[in-house]
Amino acid sequence: MILTVLGFLLLTLLVIVTGAIVRTANLFAAVVLLSLFSLLMAANFFLLDAADVALTEAAVGAGISTVLMLAALALTAETEKTASRLKWVAAGTVTALTLVLLYATLSIPRMGDPSAPVHQHVAPWYLQNTPHLIDIPNVVSAILASFRGYDTLGEVFVVFTAGIGVLFMLGMRRFPAGKRRIPPPQTLGLKHHLVPRTVGTFILPFIILFGLYVQFHGEHGPGGGFQAGAIMAAAFILYALLEGERRALDIVPPRVLMLLLASGAFLYGAVGVMCMLLGGNFLDYNVLAADPVAGQHLGIMLVELGVGVSVTGVLLSIYHAFAKREPA
């Protein structure tokens, strides 16, 4: 009962926030509202017992993508170009689509209905067989990394492609080696702001520790490579904000970023090929160790590591690609 009320409240807030996002002409306000949208969405997912998705939405939607959009906004104008008049074609399309979607909702099964198609298809099989085939408590991780390993491989390559796409368009800053001139004040980060800098350097190790926890505890609780990658990237972006681009790129130079970006996806694919060399199918982890279950554990851990490394590399590269274009 109370959960239903909370759900309705969250969905109502979601509608209000969406309306505000569409209405506002100030793009900074829109970005902050989008972050709020993601946070509400994460709460919603959590209410539906989808803790893994909630964690992803909170880390990626409310966290990283807000920072990336703010970094992009720093390069463009603050306000939206206002359309002067109503566009009839667009309005007609949107209305028609809305009607179709409303009609489609009529045939959606009720929430939590056990006879809904989604609960009749493969989900019972996963729930039944995960304990003895893979033996990890978090079925979501088992599905993501093992049963549906091909899909996740595809996702990692989508992320990888997005990363190299941005890098092709924007490139990465290379500071001239050796020549240590005094950088302009904008690249100094928040050096003159003592409080955020002190607190930031204080919590940075904890953020990284939490990222590692989410990465390697993903088989037992909510978490995994995608979430951990976003958290790790957030830690390094925080460092870049506090200490300035130059120091951040000194720690993780573009070369290393490229390596991260590629090696994560490579690790994932290599695990698959390794399985084939050992006589199994592509991404069939059973053959990785003498015991099939141990093989599954090893395979899932390596694959999740690949996901985490790749996501960290891509998000950091995109951030630096935006940051370098800021007028210094």
Binding site: H193, V195, P196, V199, I203
Partner: peptide, 16 residues
Amino acid sequence: GFLLVTNPTATYALAN
């Protein structure tokens, strides 16, 4: 602990 450290910092940064 995290809230008590980060929230005042965020407020300070915003005001600044």
